[in-house]
Design a protein around this nucleic acid. Structure first.
Lengths: 343, 343
DNA sequence: ATTAGCACTCACACTCATAGAGTGCTAACA
DNA sequence: TGTTAGCACTCTATGAGTGTGAGTGCTAAT
């Protein structure tokens, strides 16, 4: 078990390293007013902390650096959240200032502001599009043989896709179909769409529309929408600002991971509630073994949730980021819920 | 005036440097079968070429590197376009393989494939959205006080924006308005939209709709759409692959420029026709002084144009990129024109 | 006009010495 | 017994000195 003094020294060491990015020596520490001990005493304690695996040396005669275990202990037990500075709160509030009516727009801005406030990379995941429900379907003919299918969802998201109309189909039939679809599918979630499409509409189609099979399968294809476009980044390039990242190869790997959308679920576990911190190799992706990721979820109404992630070096300003994310998560939940409910 | 042999040596020097990224020495060159001269001879010629400003030395006793003037002469006079390898053509064709019906989708894929083929960064600019013409307008109510305005354009692009409905407005009026708008504005380009909005519809509104003023200005706001979302990138990270870029600061500046949409017009001059090469400081942006940019335009139908840019180091494989862009520009023009015309 | 020969230059890699920051250990101290 | 001063030790970072090699420019011979 760690003594009070060891805890204090661990905390101050981590804090100092987070701030300076330089290995921390006993002399430096003894100068701080929180630690009224001689360098020698501190040295002894640090040696113990190293023995217990909380600190590491970069070489025999260097100062110490927090180990993964050290960071973990720090965030689990030594993190004393401190209220956000006024300025930060003001900036966060500015996200909602302009009365933007679009969920996505708000999330985009959040990503930007968050990355500016932290100097790390922010990734925001909007609510799962598949949980949106259909407000209105329509089909707009473009040329002789193409048309665009449009689905408007309950919170104003618009999905659209151009498709090819089967040769020589009656425009009146398409119109009929759209009407039927709107009648039957309003309020259905995008996720259930292709299921309900068959259950509810196929029989009606048979009665009212010629060549229903062809038309049906065409439309079916058109409404199977991609649903990966609700990821928003802020400060992708902030990685380049961190002195921790100097190895071009590693930077490339890291940026690659973030660029490739398929890796996003690994960074931002979709289901999880509340705030999570993953440090270094606690991340599943090997490209992120030198990073820490802090995630938090937010809620829109009772049904929909989104998440926020901050990606930075292990030497991340945990205290600040945690409070920022806590606050933002709350604000986002509040404002976005308000938005979908109408004022 | 340069002699035949000087031209040959300049060409081979540039080619070699483009390939190896290493300063080129007289010994190396004399080994090539194209240059059956002794190192000494080549040295003399190179000294002349340096005197004339086509080559440079990195230090007194180093090999030579093309100067900006050297590259310029090379692309202007020494570029012997060579037919694309089959494999490349095949890859370019693969862009259109899947019968994608959406202009944007095709452009997105082009950006990706192009960046893969070149290992440089590709920027593709879609046709100016403002030149699209209105196919259909609609307004879908979401909550008590919000609705989403949707504009479908002639080539299947869908613009949408959520807006706030003025307090206590009659839904029937909105419906009326949309009908009027569709009657009057179909075929109008987005650019002229707000102009024609007033000219053509304001008087009609006065006759048919209560509180036309409020409704009109609300809708007017909603249709002033942003039009910057038709820029697509491929291989943003390819910059990190080039050995020419090792200075983290410069990489940051460069990536910053590309990330910021406001700088795009500087990279991709919108009006220009045909193929252009800008080398080093010929670029207006100082962050790109170590880059070369090759741009080319393509046409969709008679009205609309887009452009393609490749951003790479000055030591770019001009020959290859020029032929690639030439070909792609042609293919894109052909296929996209076909698409908006219907098959 | 071309080329072989040669002296010269400079970057790069290597070694070596030194300074400085930090440690661990021991012995003295309160 | 916990704390601290002192000291020897270790390792990095820095800079000076050196040798090597690739390359050049010039001159004289072909």
């Amino acid at each position: 078990m760690l003594t009070e003094r060891q805890l204090l020294i661990l905390k101050v060491t981590v804090d100092d390293y987070i701030q300076s990015a330089q290995p921390v020596g006993s002399n430096q520490l003894s100068k701080k007013s929180e630690l009224p001990f001689s360098p020698a005493t501190i040295r002894n304690e640090m040696a113990d902390l190293e023995g217990l695996g909380f600190l590491e040396k970069t070489h025999t005669s260097s100062g110490r650096v927090p180990s993964q275990k050290g960071y973990r202990y720090y965030v689990d037990h030594l993190l004393t959240p401190r209220p956000l500075p006024k300025q930060d709160i003001q900036q966060l509030r500015s996200i909602f200032e302009d009365k933007i009516a679009e969920t996505e727009e708000v999330i985009k801005r959040s990503a930007m502001i968050l990355s500016e406030l932290t100097n790390y990379t922010a990734i925001l995941l909007g609510p799962d599009v598949r949980k949106h429900t259909v407000k209105k379907l329509s089909i707009v003919p473009l040329t002789m043989d193409t048309a665009v299918a449009i689905i408007v969802t309950d919170n104003g998201h618009v999905e659209n896709r151009v498709f090819t109309i089967p040769e020589g189909l009656d425009p009146a039939d398409i119109e009929k179909m759209v009407n039927i679809l709107n009648d039957r599918l309003a309020g259905v979630s995008l996720n259930d769409l292709h299921l309900r499409l068959e259950q509810e509409t196929l029989t009606v189609f048979k009665q009212h529309v010629n060549r229903y099979g062809e038309l049906f399968s065409t439309f079916r294809q058109a409404v199977i929408m991609p649903h990966d476009d609700n990821v928003f980044f802020g400060g992708k390039l902030n990685i380049l600002k961190q002195p921790d990242f100097h190895d071009l190869q590693k930077i490339r790997d890291l940026m690659n991971v973030m660029e490739e959308h398929k890796h996003i679920p690994m960074i931002l576990p979709v289901g999880s509630q509340g705030l999570h911190i993953r440090i270094g190799s606690e991340n599943t992706l090997s490209a992120m073994e030198d990073c820490s990721v802090i995630t938090v979820s937010y809620d829109i109404g009772e049904e929909q949730t989104g998440s926020i992630a901050i990606v930075g070096p292990k030497r991340m300003d945990y205290k600040r980021v945690v409070t920022l994310l806590d606050t933002l998560s709350g604000e986002l939940s509040k404002e976005l819920t308000r938005m979908i409910r109408g004022k």
